[in-house]
Amino acid sequence: MKKSLPMFREPDACSCDEHGHDHDHGDHDESRRGFLKLAAGAATALAATSCGTKPDFDALLQKHYKVMTDEEKKKVFARLEERTRAITGVKVHITDPQPMDGVHFAYALNLSQCNGNRRCVEACARENNLPNDPEIRYIRVIEVDNGSQHLEKGTVHYNPEKVPQKGKFYLPVQCHQCDNAPCVRACPTKATWKEPDGIVVVDYNWCIGCRYCQAACPYHARRFNWVAPSIEPERINPNQGYLSNQIRPVGVVEKCTFCLHRTRNGRYPACYEACPTGARKFGNLADPESEVRKIVENKRVWILKEELGTEPRFFYFYG
């Protein structure tokens, strides 16, 4: 059986069979309904205690990431690590790598070389602890007819024996880490913000799950955890960042973070390493010698939905 990770709303996510929740069977008598509600409440409370998972008050009282001291962060990370270990038996390590001075991350994608093999999609899922059921994927690869830019007529569900198909080109879309990010402005709780190195992050503890950011994003880059994510223990990546691939609780929004737990340590993102064609280019836009900078300077780069003024850090080019 797959073990899920109920983080905030334990009583709902409880998987014990013996605490079956009571249901109202069509009798609309008010007093009876009130009684049933009480009974159901008691049953869930009992379920919570007897399952060994009490409501997590530490998580409820946790401060915003930006105002936490290093000491407080340490405690939070230890609590999250312990929680994952208790539920899945996997020992994970949560870190909090900081943005580097003078680094402005950017991505460039060569559409002449991308052949739509989706290696990036799956590598991203493994790296970032994305669940399979219900499926969450940060990268969508759109198959579009050659000679057109009609992305709305393209499909992400293509599944031929071999790619690339004749007469098609492939356009991967993920979070564009916009400089003028509509999602950040939409957030009512300041649970999402742009870091100095250009990465837009989410404090999963402060996200209230209103999904305004999801509606605001013109690139369909944000995903919502409708249920507590269930990841097979052997698929869990133990190298986790607090702002990136830590296992998300139910009811929060998540997104691509350019694998900040890797990239802030000098490594390439997982999608980059998985790409066999060399279509993906990643680096520091402020470094004149970096590959992305050379591409932006020398190639005809373009961005998606330029007219919206989102100023993405994700460039497409041919060549």
């Binding site: 070389q113 052949n115 739509g116 093999n117 989706r118 290696r119 999609v121 799956e122 059921d133 219900p134 499926e135 994927r137 969508r140 992400v156 569900h157 293509y158 599944n159 031929p160 024996e161 071999k162 790619v163 690339p164 409708w226 249920v227 066999p276 064609t277 060399g278």
Partner: peptide
């Protein structure tokens, strides 16, 4: 490493599985 000099076109590949079709809120 990518282009076999005897047949330089990048070989076609089998794609990874497509995203699960969105069929409403089946997860509930």
């Amino acid at each position: 490493a990518c282009h076999d000099p005897h047949d330089p076109r990048y070989p076609s590949l089998k794609p990874e599985k497509p995203p699960a079709p969105s069929k409403g809120l089946k997860a509930f």
